[in-house]
């Protein structure tokens, strides 16, 4: 009797969270699948056809992918460099980490607005450039006529906003690697770069995997920052879902966009799980 109760207890304790997820994640997901696959109550690929046929579909798909391919690697490189530098600090490591993670506390829309204030025609950037004599007057960077400047503005904002989450994961990961490995490599003649490449990076693989999955999935869902900085001058997938839902009042096509993002996120997760798998025999 007591034993039966004990073995049930973990499941009872898990139940609320499972119910919560089922109600607020699984049900909406199934509903979205249903919405995207039906028109006027009948099974139909019409929503997907409309999505693919839309003028903004290809640009938004391309923009999202290019953004992910530029932002995520940049964030990983920056976070690796920052985490490695933190490791070398003897004093004040926590304070530096704390400052670096401040952007984590800023909502993405607010982050977008901060960068808008910097980058708009009469923003801080142009004021500085004018003061330096680089430009003569207010220069627009965020219009559809300046796609490269607009793209890199979004990249800068995204890197500023979300590198810290990668950093936090990698800092935790680095702390799990015993110092002796790097010391042993050093004793046997390895240079700092060799130690990083042959010892630190492979041992950091599980943390890199976590950080990449999390960051990539979130990067595919990029929306608020883009919307604040460029509006529809830089269409992205989730932005299109938003436009179809609100402006066009077409939930079906919005659901199709949402499903596309889900599929891409799942695919990238599966990709990382396989590509960065640590075989059990190589685990420390």
């Amino acid at each position: 009797m007591t034993r039966a109760r004990t073995s049930l207890l973990p499941y009872l304790l898990l139940a609320p969270s499972l119910l919560f997820l089922a109600a607020l994640f699984l049900v909406p997901l199934l509903q979205t699948i249903g919405l995207s696959l039906t028109e006027n109550g009948e099974l139909s690929p019409a929503n997907y056809q409309r999505m693919v046929g839309d003028l903004n579909f290809v640009p938004s798909l391309r923009n999202t992918f290019v953004l992910v391919l530029v932002v995520v690697p940049a964030q990983v490189v920056f976070a690796l460099a920052m985490a490695t530098m933190l490791q070398k600090l003897r004093l004040g490591r926590d304070i530096v980490l704390w400052i670096w993670t401040i952007p984590l506390g800023v909502s993405d829309l607010a982050a977008g607005l901060v960068w808008l204030a910097i980058l708009q025609d009469r923003g801080y950037l142009n004021s500085a450039l004018m003061a330096l004599g680089v430009i003569d007057g207010p220069t627009p960077w965020l219009t559809y006529e300046t796609p490269v400047a607009l793209f890199f503005s979004v990249v800068a904002a995204e890197v500023w906003r979300a590198t810290a989450i990668v950093l936090v994961i990698l800092v935790a990961g680095l702390q799990l690697i015993p110092r002796e490995y790097a010391e042993a490599a050093e004793v046997f003649g390895a240079r700092p770069w060799t130690i990083f490449r042959r010892i630190t990076l492979p041992l950091l693989r599980p943390s890199l995997q976590t950080a990449l999955i999390l960051r990539t999935v979130l990067a595919f869902e990029v929306f608020a920052v883009v919307y604040a900085i460029g509006g529809r001058n830089f269409p992205v997938l989730v932005g299109e879902a938003f436009v179809w839902q609100t402006d066009n009042q077409n939930t079906g096509v919005a659901a199709a966009y949402a499903m596309l993002v889900v599929v891409i996120s799942l695919a990238s997760t599966v990709f990382y799980l396989r590509a960065l798998r640590t075989p059990p025999e190589q685990q420390p």
Binding site: P178, E180, Y181, A184, I199, P202, L203, R205, Q282, Q283
Partner: peptide
């Protein structure tokens, strides 16, 4: 002391 044999 902890061998520091590279696990990977």
């Amino acid at each position: 002391q902890n061998y520091a044999v590279f696990p990977h």
